[in-house]
């Protein structure tokens, strides 16, 4: 589903920072991959390269066989197939909850008002917000906003979902409700790439855990391997700091 080959990303302003150094990963359909690592390790940059919110400096990234770094690729078509959930939710504040979920369906997928509303209602019910469809995002709690954001991404019927630290901006008591939605998605067979600090989530749901440091993948493996028997010293150090 996702193939990243020798991906490099360098930011030049204000001085050269090598955010990604020769990152390669294969993510199969239906797989749930959790990316962890210390801050500044390039995990968010990697995730954002997967839908070209950041343009990789070199290398190849294929989404469902399409080379997204090729200038001839219609990136908007690819992005419609790749849902993304952000740390700061990024709901549209001038649109109601329902409109947040229907807008891209109408504009990008060209669905009718009725069909997109039906789809939105089903998804909002799934994430547990069906009683607040007419309120505006600023009247929702962080956890509720993030669940709406997940519904908004799911409304496009994506083949892949990218989660960029979806629970980092939440109050502790709201993390559970968002993780529950993500777990449901994982059980239903959604292909997911999650950047997160929730080790419990990684242990429980991930098929594979990727540990990144200084822009490179240090170690990747099953959660059992990763949490019980890490090979690299850097991984051990990181785990000892957070667990």
């Amino acid at each position: 589903m996702i193939q990243a080959k020798n991906v490099y990303k360098t930011f030049y302003a204000p001085h050269a920072i090598h955010a990604l150094v020769d990152v390669s990963a294969d993510i199969a359909a239906g797989e749930v991959v959790v990316v962890i690592g210390p801050s500044g390790s390039g995990k968010s940059t990697f995730l954002r390269c997967l839908n070209r919110l950041e343009h990789a400096t070199s290398g190849h990234i294929y989404i469902d066989g399409i080379d997204i770094l090729d200038a001839r690729t219609d990136i908007n078509k690819v992005r419609a197939e790749v849902g993304m959930v952000f740390q700061s939710f990024n709901l549209f504040p001038h649109k109601s909850v329902l409109e947040n979920v229907t807008l891209a369906q109408k504009v990008v997928r060209k669905r009718s008002g009725g069909a997109s509303t039906e789809k939105a209602m089903a998804l909002l019910k799934k994430v547990g917000i069906s009683d607040k469809i007419d309120v505006f995002p600023d009247q929702l709690s962080g956890g509720q906003q993030q669940r709406v954001a997940i519904a908004r991404a799911l409304a496009m019927d994506p083949k892949v979902m990218l989660f960029d630290e979806p629970t980092s901006a939440l109050d502790p008591e709201m993390i559970g409700e968002v993780l529950d939605v993500m777990k449901t998605l994982a059980r239903e067979g959604m292909t997911m790439v999650c950047v997160t600090h929730e080790m419990g989530f990684a242990r429980e749901v991930a098929d594979r855990v990727i540990f990144m440091d200084a822009g490179a993948i240090v170690e990747a493996g099953t959660p059992e391997h990763f949490f019980t028997n890490p090979t690299h010293d850097r991984t051990k150090l990181f785990l000892s700091q957070i667990l």
């Binding site: 839908n51 919110l53 504009v107 954001a149």
Partner: peptide
């Protein structure tokens, strides 16, 4: 900037 990113990540064009 997150507003543009959210819109673009849903597949909207720059104009949309």
């Amino acid at each position: 900037r997150g507003q543009t990113e959210a819109a673009r990540s849903l597949g909207m064009t720059y104009g949309q």
